[in-house]
Amino acid sequence: MKTNRSRRFLTLLTALLALSMFAAACGGSESATGTATSECGTDNAVVKGDKVTDLSVAVVAPSDSQDLAFTQSMIDSLTRLGIEPQVTDGTFQVEVAADAIRGYAEDGINVIIVHGTQYGGSLAEIAPDFPETSFIWGTATSTQGIANIFAYYPEAQQGGYVNGWIASELTGGGAIGVVGPVEAGDAVAYINGFKAGAEANGVSNVAVTYTGSFSDVALATEAAEALVTVGVEALTGTSQSAVGAVNVADENGIPWFGTQSNQEAWSTDQVVASQVYHWEVILDDMFEMIEEGTLGGEAMSLTLENGGLLVEINGCFNLDSDIESGAQDIIKKIIAGDINPPA
């Protein structure tokens, strides 16, 4: 078990080293709430933080823990909190995930992070059987009224709005393309926010293509190619298949906007900014409550205001400083409630 853990950890570390991810300790400069700009050329790996809790933690997640998207955002967040969770990833089938969740609970794990909205139905059956265990479930807006469930949710439309606004500044009103998977889940919130941000700044054509698949890279690639023939001057997209679309952006010199995890590693030149989920902001609070004996009952969301959403700007892209400060104004307005991006 011990060797295994260190192996996992080493793999994780080496993998993360390959990415240029934001980390305050590693040369990134935090300029204001809501944004951060990486320094070009530095190795911005996720750095393991000081361990915040002695609780044992397990994660059950639908995609691979190194997907540079949804699942990795959670693993990275735990790393920043100094926690090495037990992980069961790639459990896209709900019944298998339910089996794993129950298994961890029976093993006596203190906190089980149930990282997939689709697992909610099963969780509602499992959680009452293990009143001593705390379940952290997302993305979800409600705890389903169960005392030992915490829920978490990203206000993805907020960062989407900021991304959309920056994109519209870059295209000067020119068309923008979005490559989506299936029109469902938090992808929709991000895309709606993105559209609103772009349209508020004079873009009349935000072309959205849903490929019908979360994982088909070939489809995402050709969807992006099709958007290029429409004449889009900036691209964004969600899901693990988005890497195909990033490649198209990279080849055509079209700026790309990422979400969920920092996607600079996918294209150093063309990734402008990524909305990154920093779950640690709310996880920290939850762990504290759990240690004090409150095992759930609250839903928390990531926002630009609480720092859970961070628009991480790629230092290598050399974004115009006017645009960057403009983006910060937008963020301030969103935090102040002057702008309410639609979800």
């Binding site: 639908p62 896209f92 089938q93 709900v94 019944e95 298998v96 339910a98 689709q118 909610g120 139905g121 099963s122 509602a124 059956e125 499992i126 998977p181 299936v182 469902a184 019908g212 698949s213 979360f214 994982s215």
Partner: peptide, 22 residues
């Protein structure tokens, strides 16, 4: 059986076939 024998008692898709059928 996959729907009505499941704990969550609902039909849910993750966009692909295997997500439901395994």
């Amino acid at each position: 059986m996959l729907v009505f024998g499941s704990e969550s008692l609902r039909l849910v898709t993750d966009g692909g076939a295997a997500g439901f059928t395994g």
